[in-house]
Design a protein around this nucleic acid. Structure first.
Length: 454
RNA sequence: GUGGUUGUAGUUCAGUUGGUUAGAACAUCUGAUUGUGGUUCAGAGGGUCGUGGGUUCGAGUCCCAUCUUCCACCCCA
């Protein structure tokens, strides 16, 4: 075979086996989202570039996939501009559309565009691929799926509670043990204020967010490099080394924050949320983590992150509250809170622990062997009957050598094969072969249905 | 975007200081076995050695470029 075709860098094919496993994850997440009254939204793969640019910072803009205008895409470009070779400037002239970078910005765009048709608060979930022109590496792709649920137009902390409940329920259903870490950006703002560097809030959160990964020393270095004085960084120590029970942590942070304004509301919010949480029993650990920061800087209130207790892989789910997501599109004062599940990482964890249910993979129960025209006519009505009874079944479509047909059933993990030749037809029966243990017996069509329905 | 790394059959990999016709295992197909797969045996097909240049009498092997793979950083799911 000459040159095999291939797919672009950082993209993947999902084989039937892998697809089945991925659907198991998506279906579980979807089922829980729906039960909490979130409704599905789908938006186009491509957005106007003006919708996307400037929303993810300078880095993000570079990672946007841009779509070349159709037809004569050089129409708007002058010879002079072409010669200047200023790619940033040229990009806007030759491309008006781009592939979506996440699901949050298209969601915000949708809300603003349809604000008069939407009854708030609005709850939506969205499971679609997103694209980033990043350099691929372990667990990072140029095309990957996000599973988001957001509620917008409500300040109630009940929404935060429900997000924690959804996380707990989804990972329970997936048979995974996780820890849900919760913090509040207002506490972090209070901390920045207290150490005398409120304007360094973003830098501070980005650095603290790396604590798990790079350790205390490097975080200090990064904070100092960001322009925060050494004295101020030293003040942070009790916070970064904090531990103990919820009450211990709260006592410590309350004392530390004192009268800072955002600190007080942050503490109130945390108390209220954990008050709600204490009303329920959860299967997973729920804990306050004052060092949790999350890099994304549109979060303003509660923030969540979920890590597996069983496999070290980084966060498999994250989210938080944002106060002004739609502001950039001209709709002010819309507070929302959302959560995003990383399907690819959850897949890796399940695969790693061998936790995919066995029946996810093969769902074809039976194959009829094809002996020829007369036999086909005998089998086809029974095949139809099986399908009507809810059994996934098929007939080998060509009357080829039996060995080939058996091999097909075997390599597709089909557990039963039905054979009907002259003898069986004369008795109005089938030979039903169990492919796992090799046994076979003569049964009627109805007996076959009963056996396969078990 | 920065630094490193990888590429030989469908897949995983051998291939000596540069030297005849580039190998193995698994997979595929055919037969042993015309109504029995997963085991066994015999055989077959499958390669412009990622691509394009260069050095050389001669390149899978050396040099350059480019693409790809994987990894780290930046950033992020």
């Amino acid at each position: 075979m000459a040159n095999l075709p291939s797919i672009p860098k950082g993209t993947r094919d999902f084989s039937p086996e892998v697809s089945a496993k991925r659907n198991y994850i998506f279906d579980t997440i979807k089922y829980v989202f729906k039960r909490f009254a979130y409704r599905q939204l789908e938006t186009p793969a491509m957005e106007n570039l003006s919708t996307l640019t400037g929303k993810y910072g300078e880095e993000g803009d570079k990672l946007l996939f841009k779509i070349l205008n159709s037809g004569n895409f050089l129409k708007k470009v002058s010879d002079k501009e072409l010669c200047e070779r200023n790619t940033a400037k040229l990009a806007h002239l030759v491309a008006e559309k781009g592939l979506r970078y996440d699901l949050t910005v298209p969601f915000a765009r949708y809300i603003v565009q349809h604000q008069n048709e939407i009854t708030f608060p609005f709850k939506r979930f969205q499971i679609q691929p997103v694209w980033r022109a990043d350099r691929p590496q372990k667990g990072r792709y140029r095309e990957f799926y996000q599973c988001d649920a957001d509620i917008i137009g409500s300040n109630s902390l009940i929404n935060e509670l429900e997000i924690v409940q959804m996380i707990d329920e989804i990972f329970t259903k997936l048979n995974l043990k996780v820890t849900v870490k919760i913090n509040n950006r207002k506490l972090l703002a209070g901390i920045a204020e207290r150490i005398g560097f409120p304007e360094k809030f973003t830098e501070m959160t980005v650095a603290i967010d790396k604590l798990d990964k790079i350790g205390l020393k490097k975080v200090y270095e990064e904070l100092i490099q960001a322009g925060i004085s050494e004295d101020a960084v030293n003040l942070l120590e009790p916070i970064l080394n904090i531990g103990g029970s919820f009450d211990d942590q709260m006592q410590c942070i309350e004392k530390f924050l004192g009268e800072t304004e955002s600190g007080i509301t942050g503490i109130q919010e945390i108390h209220k949320l954990f008050d709600y949480i204490s009303l329920f029993r959860f299967n997973n650990n729920i804990q306050l983590d004052l060092t949790l920061a999350r890099g994304l800087n549109y979060y303003t209130g509660a923030i969540f992150e979920v890590v597996s207790d069983e496999v070290q892989i980084g966060s498999i789910c994250g989210g938080g509250r944002y106060d002004d997501l739609t502001g950039v599109f001209g709709l002010k004062e819309m507070s929302g809170v959302g959560i995003s599940f990383g399907a690819d990482r959850i897949y890796d964890v399940l695969e790693n622990l061998n936790r995919f249910p066995k029946d996810v993979i093969s769902n074809v129960k039976l194959m009829f062997v094809n002996f020829g025209e007369k036999e086909e006519k005998y089998c086809l009505p029974v095949l139809q009957k099986l399908r009507n009874a809810g059994i996934n079944a098929e007939i080998y479509s060509d009357s080829v050598k039996m060995k080939k047909q058996m091999k097909y059933a075997n390599s597709n993990n089909i557990p039963y094969v039905a054979l009907a030749g002259e003898t069986e037809i004369s008795e109005n029966k089938f030979t039903l072969k169990n492919m796992q243990n090799g046994t076979q017996k003569l049964v009627s069509a109805n007996e076959m249905i009963n056996i396969l329905s078990e």
